[in-house]
Design a protein around this nucleic acid. Sequence first.
RNA 1: GACCCUAUCGUCCAGUGGUUAGGACAACGGCCUUUCAAGCCGUGAACACGGGUUCGAAUCCCGUUAGGGUCGCCA
Length: 446
Amino acid sequence: MSSPSPIRVRFAPSPTGFLHVGGARTALFNWLYARKHGGTFVLRVEDTDQSRNTEEAVQVIYDGLKWLGLDWNEGPLVGGDFGPYFQSQRNAIYERYLKQLQDGGHLYDDAGATRFRSPRQSVVVDDAVCGRIEFDMSNPATHPDMTIRRPDGSWIFHFVNVVDDIEMRISHVIRGEDHLSNTPKHVEMYRALGVQPPVFAHIPLILKRDGKGKMSKRDEGSSVNSYIEGGYVPEAVRNYLCLLGWSPKDNREKLDIEDVVHLFDLDKINRRNAAFDLDKCFWLNGQYIAQMSMARFRELCAPALAAAGIPTDERGDTYLESVLGLVKEKIKLITEVGPWTRPLFMDDFPFDEAAVEKTLKPAGTGGRLRELAAKLNRVTDWSHDPIEGAFKELATAAGVKPALYIHPARIALSGRAVGPGLYQMIGVLGKDRILARLEKAAGMAG
RNA sequence: GACCCUAUCGUCCAGUGGUUAGGACAACGGCCUUUCAAGCCGUGAACACGGGUUCGAAUCCCGUUAGGGUCGCCA
């Protein structure tokens, strides 16, 4: 017996300036498979279309993969023994393989374009996900010969893709099911080249929310960039992507990536296409935020806070962490941290017009806010329970619901109707700022 | 249209011959309460249809229907 050939998989995106979640999921499954089996994950840029091949477009791919934590063992930026990893730089290799096909009599000219002649025999694809599929290739009308090179000398995807997979010693081709129908043609080419085809694994597609068609560029959540910019946590998005077409079989939803690597395998991948559900991704994101360490939360919030122009250094680390602690279990997106915490760092914060109108303006509110200020001023143990007690006592003494003090206080202190727990927030803000803000709000109240 | 894949709650997944068909998101209701949230508890919600095979089918087979994909000198 020969020693088992090493596991080598690849992700081969085209630089379009856009990294699709479907592509990201394909990359993820390849990465998982490589990790699981101690294999090599190759990144190859399929930039045969020079017109849209730009530096920025390639950068989008790098950024998306890096953000998701999908590091590649071979490819651009890291190198490897099978480069170059850009198809635009592999022309000599393609010429060599073209010659080989020509010598074998597999090619013919069609109005200047080069086409590969199908042997017209049935092809069996033993797919690691879809099982054994037999394709009847006898009808040229339904399975026309592939064009592999245009009259202008540029290459067609099918050819260079197969050549590169051969040259890069790819052992498993894990890709979207939209390539399944092309696979027998690829197999014909492997055979014509005298090469054993790799194992194919066609994974289900990600469909639009309503299941009507493949998810496309215009659909919400289709771009990895939208998650990066939308305040999503990379490990949460990656986790959600794992659950599209694969599952740990034990009903767990939130899993560490190490567990996924351990449990993952091709035969556990579903065969059914999955409709994309951004709600669940959103929920999972909130779970990740609530449960992550304060250190990680700080790390993720730092850019968002900086972008919002919030001075987080002025009161020191301890203060910063107590503020973040107020919102950590409540926000679902990192982008929410700015608006939620601004009143904790700055005295100049916006007031929500509708909330002011509804809660601050009603007659008697100003008086109650002054009562509250006086009451809180007498609180000596500035912590949660005594603060809560002050509100309750005030309401009882006045014979009204605590809500008549609580709601206006929230608006007065933060300008918002939504936010951290009120008593916790008061505790963190401190007595001086509380009294000042209550007084100021009393002035604008009814 | 031809070929290929698929078919369990609205959605994502469990369930591989015998289960009260399970979990999660979403929805709805309740509790808590301090509003929106969060949290906790609960409710409704599915085996596409028709034939087989079998003592017994969500599970196996065939057909129908439906959905998706592919049929490029796109990738």
